[in-house]
Amino acid sequence: MTESLVQRRHALSVLSQQLDVLARSPVPSFASTLRAIGLDPLTRTSPRVLQINVGKMCNQVCRHCHVDAGPDRTEIMTRETMTHCLAALDAAPFEVVDLTGGAPELNPDFRWLVEQVRARGRAVIDRCNLTILLVRGQHDLVDFLAGHQVEVVASLPYFQARQTDAQRGDGVFEKSIEGLRRLNAAGYGAADGRLKLNLVYNPVGAFLPPRQEAIERDFRRELAQRHDVRFNHLFTITNMPINRYLEYLLESGNFDEYMQRLQAAFNPAAARGVMCRDTLSVGWDGTLHDCDFNQQMQLGLPAGLPRHIADFRPEALHQAPIAIGNHCYGCTAGAGSSCGGAVE
């Protein structure tokens, strides 16, 4: 297992270095591309998803991680900040609370937060790395998630060990399959859809994802035949050229070509459907962002909008502009990419 950029004191752990690299990429600015299709400024629609990043701590150190998460990252959301999130939930009609990290389950108040959100009748998504289900102290996590009808969105970049382990670490595939089996045993992934288990595919390398329906068929066949594992849907997510994936792109000499590939595959329909239009993202420290990627780039809501969840006012978001950067090409390439998979 490697370490986070921060732990290694890597140059890219300094955010301005990443911004410099992205600014020098051989593509027109994302803003100018939006302008060309009359989508500047990109603005919000009705808020639907409150995505809360409860901390950067993780039991894995994946090579493509846009958060630069890892065991050494100690940034964790406090219960006080979670209380502000719940107040926002009471003030606005968010349908879904999407919990992410790091490994969100490692936050000591994760289960409390899930209970509070479910008591408010809102749906909860747990972005689960699967191996966390096997970690000591988490033996009852599957039952907890099932008991609260939490939707599990689980990372599994490929249906074979070689690719999965190359991205997520040695032995991760085998543990992930064991995690999926435990979820299946609890009723997750059944055809009735009562306990939703959705998988996330990320390309293992410097290329774009396949068509979602096509690769979903391959995953369903291979996981059933070889591992007796079932799931509901598979989401394809494009890797975002920030943090550790940016490190990979630069080290492998793929950065320029990847940015050109993203830009050449720019899809106006995907741009109109980007997730930031109906998502509000909260950082571990309560800061507000248009998406989890902007959050990692420390790009807050545009000027004049609330900066912190404690200051959240639903009316402030009404048709508010969205902060953008060249990394946004990652969400608009091909069929588009969002935390819920392809956009069209």
Binding site: Y158, Q160, R162, Q163, P203, G205, F207, L208, P209, P210, R211, A214, I215, D218
Partner: peptide, 10 residues
């Protein structure tokens, strides 16, 4: 090669 990877082949 790129196209095959982007279509999900291994």
């Amino acid at each position: 090669t790129r196209s095959c990877l982007e279509q999900g082949s291994n």
